[in-house]
Design a protein around this nucleic acid. Structure first.
Length: 449
DNA sequence: GTTGAGCGTT
């Protein structure tokens, strides 16, 4: 079922053939490999003469009506990218409303550690390094081992130097030495923090706005990783971007979508204090309902492994939540324009529908695999990160200089690959970006708003 | 020289 799909950068430019997957979908990573920065696909519908967006979900583009047919598709880029290409003429074509310019680039993401699951027992850190280097510069590689026996536990951690590498890596599965391995965002707070402020609240939505349309619309501003529209209709939505800067940049703006003016504001529930208030009532739940919202690996595991232990498709609203919709009009809408919606939003968050939410009341039907029902304390504000440098056992500056093959191959030696500084470092704290963690961008606590 | 869902000695 794999085929080649013709894609052009602009509608009138020469298309390029890009391969689809066996299931007929087109990986966004495949598209991006030929059209760097592309975040979607569209084509002109001959019946209506208008452009039609292609559904994107979990990094895969789905053929319209199940068939790519023989159309020529046009790659879609985030707006900033488009702006660069069309030198400034902004008053034409598509309905781009009043918007402040977004200069932040989508690749200015912070990377997070990634967990690699399902490793062969024999795989070494050097093996991982060799394999994952194909996606980009690696800052860290770990294989977790039994301290006594030195035997691998079958999983490890990696960290890329740039976010695009991370995205690319996570958008596919990996065969390492004969085993299918998953790369995900770890359940730890590391990744969860990056979820902060990536989600915006879109108020005054109309009922005819579909998630796909919202996704398509907001993709102009940056990669959209999730759109959530509560059901039944409650006139708001959540849009989650890959880049928190994009999300933040949109906050406070009014946009016109399908003729309606929607208002974008922060979706940050900022309810970490409230969590403490209701310590007793929060049963359990990983801090990362997040994990499936963002760090999911759609392909599950290879081999015979079965699905994820924590898949929370919390459908129903838990009892005893907030008073329901629109009875709130009695509260005086004029003064608190966002109140009703925010209340409803809180409701949605609390119920777990949003796929995140700090409290995670309902996690899923099954037992919490995290062992023990205690929710790890959020430690919202604390700066838990070590200062630069001492964090990982084998942070290394730049791949490419692999002269340490002696240490890499033979001696475990605490599995230290020993590349803290490579050639050409003029002392510490020069050249941010190399040299491991010194450059670790404005540490996580900064992302909390 | 076993195992196969998970979540990280520092």
């Amino acid at each position: 079922m794999s085929e080649y799909i013709r894609v052009a950068e602009e509608e009138d430019e020469e298309p390029m053939e890009v391969p689809s997957e066996e299931d007929g979908t087109l990986l966004l990573s495949t598209l991006a490999a030929q059209f760097p920065g592309a975040c979607g696909l569209k084509y002109r519908n001959p019946d209506t003469g208008t452009m039609r967006g292609i559904r994107l979900s979990d990094g895969r583009l789905y053929p319209p009506d199940g068939d790519w047919e023989n159309r020529i598709y046009v790659a879609v880029f985030p707006r900033s990218h488009t702006e660069n290409k069309k030198k400034g003429d902004q008053s034409e074509g598509e309905q781009i409303p009043v918007v402040t310019t977004i200069k932040k680039r989508t690749d200015r993401q912070k990377c997070s550690d990634l967990i690699v699951l399902g490793l062969p027992w024999k795989s070494t850190e050097d093996d991982l390094k060799k394999y994952f280097s194909q996606f980009g510069e690696l800052l860290m590689v770990q294989v977790k081992k039994d301290p006594k026996t030195g035997q691998s536990k079958g999983f490890g951690f990696i960290r890329f130097g740039d976010y695009e590498s991370q995205i690319k890596c996570m958008s596919q599965r990996h065969n390492i030495d004969g085993r299918w391995c998953d790369v995900r965002i770890p359940n730890s707070r590391e990744g969860a923090q990056q979820m902060m402020n990536r989600k915006v609240f879109v108020g005054r939505c109309t009922e005819d706005m579909t998630a796909e349309e919202l996704r398509f619309y907001f993709n102009k501003f940056g990669e959209v990783v999730d759109v959530f529209i509560p059901k039944p209709f409650r006139a708001f939505a959540f849009v989650t971007f890959a880049d928190p800067d994009v999300a933040q940049g949109l906050c406070g703006e009014d946009h016109i979508i399908k003729g309606a003016s929607v208002h974008i504001s922060s979706a940050a529930p900022k309810s970490y204090d409230r969590q403490n208030d209701r310590k007793g009532s929060m049963a359990q739940g990983q801090p990362g309902g997040y994990t499936q919202a963002y760090g999911q690996s759609p392909w599950s595991q290879g081999g015979g492994r079965t699905g994820h232990p924590h898949v929370s498709q919390a459908g129903a609203m838990p009892a005893g939540t907030l008073p329901n919709n629109l009875g709130i009009s009695s509260l005086g809408l004029g003064a608190f324009q966002l109140s009703p919606a925010m209340l409803a939003a809180a409701q949605a968050i609390m119920s777990g529908q949003g796929g995140w939410g700090p409290v995670g009341l309902v996690s899923q039907g099954g037992p919490n695999p995290g062992g023990g029902g205690t929710l790890p304390p959020p430690t919202a504000t604390g700066p838990p990160d070590n200062p630069a440098g001492h964090n990982s056992t084998q942070a290394f500056g730049s791949i490419g200089s692999v002269q340490t093959s002696a240490a890499a191959t033979g001696t475990p030696s605490n599995s230290f690959l020993g590349w803290g500084a490579t050639q050409g470092n003029e002392g510490p704290s020069t050249s941010p970006g190399v040299g491991g963690w010194g450059a670790a961008p404005p540490n996580k606590s900064g992302a909390w708003n």
